[in-house]
Design a protein around this nucleic acid. Sequence first.
DNA 1: GTTGAGCGTT
Length: 260
Amino acid sequence: MSHFGRTGPPDIADTYSLLVLNITFRTSADDLFPLFDKYGKVVDIFIPRDRRTGESRGFAFVRYKYAEEAQKAVDRLDGRVVDGREMAVQFAKYGPNAERIHQGRIIEKVPGFKGSSRSRSPRRRYRDDYHRDREYRRSRSRSVDRYERDRYRQRERVYRHRSRSRSLSPDYDRDRGRGRDRKHHRRSPSVDSASPSRRSPSPHRKESPPRSLSPTKGSPVRRVRNERSPTPRSRSPPGRAMDSRSPSPRVDEVISRALV
DNA sequence: GTTGAGCGTT
């Protein structure tokens, strides 16, 4: 019984939910279960994951059967370092359907009977969640920096493109300083022929052998996971595949070829 | 392969 949350919430009636924050992105329910089960009867553990990547979002929900045990878990596990990161354990404030709960327990009366307590409003939960999730992570998350950086990169690309288009005359571009280097290099072509290593577009080459490490590299010092990634299908998430472009070397090549 | 405020699924 280690797969929590796989078949949905078993019985959220008379359970006390704890919100576990600041856990590692690699921490799974199996890792949290032994920690929380020591302080009481854990009914369910659920770790929300990203819709696109399927990775953990960094927090989890642990449901206890009794409030005193949940309180004890909060008192004992709040601030506990798990996987090198200090996690924060506190009582959940909202239920699975955004109901207000008190001390982790759902206050609102469930119209359904045993088991079907969530059949109150299972309508909205498809595209809205996708959009909301994306906006969620874009609002205040580390993705903001990434998106800003991408935007900056795109703007830089556009700027370069515009500059190149604007300077149709090579004299203009040459007088800006870039042509001077070219002219200087053109004046001494022996440099290009004599030092081919300088022409290397990436002087930061590591020159590391392709496969030099022995297969016995895996040391069991880390956690061994039997089934950590059951569905590794999506190797390349859509949306970031178009960002991997390198327009700079291409433009340089074009200019170099045009000058020669 | 990365990241770090917050409240949730078959």
